[in-house]
């Protein structure tokens, strides 16, 4: 063969675009986008229909309004992360796709990172749409100057970091499952139910509400930093960011090791 070897970077791009196309072809992507538009857009349209007086009666400031809207973001980031990461690896080993993809001259680390970045782009795209709706509502119902831009921007960055952490966790669980469907369901159950139970048990028995190990705990800071201010959130912004970063790096590393070792 005369073709010169392709760099890892070029193969990463192929893996990335392939995976993005894969997500865009799924019902779950369009369902999540539809849900975000329905919830965020629905609330905005309802408030717009009721008029400025109604909005002013329920939300004293743009900060109150945006903080209330962003209350859904933590749940959204966890759901999209689980949806787009829960079957990212198990697809290779639970179906015969692995025999096709893994026999190509591409490093598994390149395939994994391409898929991870694709999942992150798609997930964060949906989260960004929700922030956009919150931002447009804030400007529309109040004024440009009334929107707490700094805390809103920081909240968005934290939401992206949280999404990355959830994705790493989901990739890790996905690498433990042989069935894409089961991997997806287990990831959603663990993230939405399992971690909540663990948080509740630890809070009850250890008598502390500082759950430094929990990504759900970190998620509280996303809307908190808008409503309570950047320095007044529980958990503190730095702690929420640290928890998310540790999830992102730690579980991605475990997922990488498991993916490298997995056999078809």
């Amino acid at each position: 063969m005369t073709h010169s070897p392709v760099s890892d970077t070029e193969q990463f791009e192929v893996a990335l675009t392939t995976q993005v196309r894969s997500y865009l072809s799924t019902y779950r992507f369009w369902a999540m986008l539809g849900l975000v538009l329905a919830i965020g857009g629905g609330i905005s349209l309802y408030l717009a229909a009721r008029g400025a007086g109604f909005v002013a009666h329920h939300f004293a400031t743009a900060t109150d309004y945006i903080g209330a809207i962003l209350g859904f973001v933590a749940f959204l980031a966890i759901v999209v992360g689980a949806f787009f990461g829960g079957d990212a690896i198990s697809t290779d080993f639970g179906t015969k796709t692995g025999y096709y993809v893994l026999a190509q001259p591409v490093k598994r680390s390149v395939l994994l990172s391409g898929r991870y970045v694709a999942a992150f782009l798609v997930s964060s795209g949906i989260v960004a749409v929700y922030y956009l709706i919150a931002m447009v509502g804030g400007v529309g119902f109040f004024s440009f100057g009334a929107v707490p831009w700094a805390s809103l921007g920081l909240s968005f960055l934290l939401a992206l970091l949280l999404t990355a952490g959830v994705l790493s966790f989901a990739f890790c669980l996905s690498s433990l499952s042989r069935s894409p469907a089961i991997g997806l369901v287990i990831t959603i159950i663990v993230l939405l139910v399992g971690l909540s139970i663990i948080d509740g048990v630890v809070t009850a028995f250890a008598g502390t509400s500082s759950l430094w190990f929990s990504i759900l705990y970190a998620a509280d800071a996303i809307s908190g930093m808008v409503t309570q201010g950047i320095s007044g959130t529980t958990p503190p912004v730095w702690q929420a960011a640290a928890i998310s970063a540790v999830y992102t790096v730690g579980f991605a590393a475990v997922a990488y090791v498991l993916y490298q070792r997995e056999e078809t």
């Binding site: 193969q11 192929v14 072809s25 001259p105 078809t264």
Partner: peptide
């Protein structure tokens, strides 16, 4: 190996082009 299955959502053309891209 083992009657592999390409991505089911991809067209045959895209499937082959993806392999071509991976292989330079």
């Amino acid at each position: 190996i083992e009657s592999p299955e390409p991505y089911p959502w991809q067209t045959g053309q895209r499937t082959l082009e993806m392999v071509a891209a991976f292989r330079g």
